[in-house]
Amino acid sequence: MQSDERPLRKIIHVDMDAFYASVEQRDDPELKGKPVAVGGGHRGVVTAASYEARPYGVRSALPSVTAKRLCPDLIFVKPRFDVYRAVSQQIRSIFSDYTDLVEPLSLDEAYLDVTEDRRGLGSARAIAEDIRRRIREETQLTASAGVSYCKFIAKLASDHRKPDGLCVITPEKGPEFVASLPVAHFHGVGPVTAKKMERLGILTGADLRDWSLPALQAHFGSSADWYWRIARGIDEREVKPDRPYKSVSAERTFDEDLRDADRLAAELTRIAGYAWDRIERAEVAGRTVTLKVKYGDFTLITRSKSFVLPVPDLDAFTLAGQALLAALYPLPKGIRLLGLGLHNLSEGGVEPPVQLGLAI
């Protein structure tokens, strides 16, 4: 997997368990043990769900109305991103005691390269156990961790024994671990690709490994090399601290091409809520809103609007996206995919809201 000239990397993926919802349950004892959803309200979607809510099918990005129908006892709480950021910084401070090589993915998860055993704990497993112990003691929250020789498998491993679990996958066991899992669980294989793989008879990592690179290229183009490598447990990406964001977005592919203006507006509002959640998790601000549209014949277009000041909040972000969509009417054909994103980013989030002129 790695060159003989350098040691195998020791990588930990730490993922907080139902982070937003767990913080709310920690801070309000009356919520403990109950199905909780963070979000709802004007956003219209679930931002995060507690483990008590998940057996009912409540999950992130689910419309609030649907979530309440699935779980009548569901308790909605408003998100408190200032609190989540503060707890996230507390957790990152713990990470920094073990390594400088920390790559945050969001407020609630990160990769750590602990190849150098700074504290002399003896193994990556011991380091992960100590990090999880400190998180529990210092924040009263639980984290799951995956330990392996590469980022791809470490992330798979952290999901394997959630919540409050630890999973170690050694280099010898890496390929077979990947082979045993559904491809739908793989990072980089989204729902649409997973369905396409299913139609081709690719259900597990073992099925994917049976395909040659040329055969994968015929169906998946430039993504084929990644699929071929991960099916064999190969991932040589380094842990990169302070990973810069070029843009933050969300998109959705529909089961059928859409033309109805009200339906498309509702879908875009939902997508905007999910994208804004990612924007807040990434702690960035941006001045350019970009709409992505893929028509039924796979023609792809983008439309953007830039502002002098950063987009201040979800409402302004959504309004800008809706104006960009409205400018496309009358539609030449049905829409297969909608996406909305924020570009021209800077770190640190948005200062006190500023009223922007959003006429397009």
Rank of each mutant, 00 (worst) to 15 (best):
M1N: 06
M1C: 05
L8W: 04
K10A: 05
H13E: 01
H13C: 02
F19Y: 15
P29D: 04
E30H: 06
K34E: 09
A37Q: 01
V38G: 12
G40M: 10
A53S: 12
R54G: 10
A61S: 15
L62T: 11
V65Y: 12
V65W: 07
T66Q: 10
D73R: 13
L74D: 11
F81Q: 04
D82F: 00
D82K: 14
R92H: 11
F95N: 05
L101A: 02
L107H: 12
D108N: 05
E109H: 10
Y111D: 08
D113F: 03
T115G: 05
E116I: 10
D117P: 00
D117Q: 02
G120I: 06
L121S: 00
S123Q: 04
I127H: 02
R136L: 05
T139I: 01
L141A: 02
A143N: 00
Y149Q: 06
Y149T: 13
K155N: 09
A157G: 10
A157I: 09
D159I: 09
G165A: 02
L166C: 03
V168L: 13
F177H: 13
V178I: 02
A179M: 07
S180V: 09
A184D: 01
V192D: 01
A194R: 11
L203E: 08
T204W: 05
A206D: 08
A206H: 09
W211A: 04
S212L: 13
A215I: 07
A215F: 03
H219I: 09
S222N: 09
S222T: 12
R232W: 14
V239D: 02
R243K: 14
R243C: 06
V248G: 01
D255L: 04
D255E: 12
D257E: 15
D257F: 13
L258S: 02
D260I: 04
A261K: 14
D262K: 14
L264H: 11
E267R: 12
R270G: 13
G273Y: 08
R278K: 15
A285D: 07
A285G: 15
R287L: 09
T288E: 08
V293C: 14
F298N: 08
K305G: 01
P310S: 11
P312A: 03
A323Y: 05
L324K: 10
P330T: 14
P332S: 00
H343S: 15
E347Y: 06
P352E: 05
Q355P: 00
Q355H: 14
G357Y: 05
L358Y: 03
I360H: 07
